[in-house]
Design a protein around this nucleic acid. Sequence first.
DNA 1: TAGGCCATCTGGTCCT
DNA 2: AGGACCAGATGGCCTA
Length: 142
Amino acid sequence: MDTQRPFLEPTMFNFVSDINCDVSPRSVFGGPEGLDASLTYHMDYHGAHEDLTSAINGFDCTGGRAGESGIRETPRRKRVITSVQRRAANIRERRRMFSLNEAFDELRRKVPTFAYEKRLSRIETLRLAIVYISFMTELLGK
DNA sequence: TAGGCCATCTGGTCCT
DNA sequence: AGGACCAGATGGCCTA
């Protein structure tokens, strides 16, 4: 999938790993094709939802943590998040997903494949790794 | 063209 | 309070 997101080449992600919230994403990804453009697009797309969120602006009358039983006596204050915090969270999430993909790449290199095969997808990598580990375990058991 | 895969955004929940 | 983690939603690219 490397060709699909040219601005997310690994070399670019070396920059991402250095991002902090004070750095303009545009300065990292560059130009209107970069992060800001993407963000603007999605902010527009989810605009209605965001308006609703900000309109609610305060109390969550239904929520609660998963596993908590039903009735709540006091309304839980909804976490208010600014656009700056949202952007920072997005950057952290991208960084997290990048490290996840790095781990997948490492796993791909450990798992035996034929050289001419196309790159394994993440799910294929996991499944092949399971099979491979099972095989090696069985081999050691004999 | 449909389906698979992926990157990204987002809000909710968990954890420190 | 804020970061990490997670799952859902969405759209783009690629291939059969």
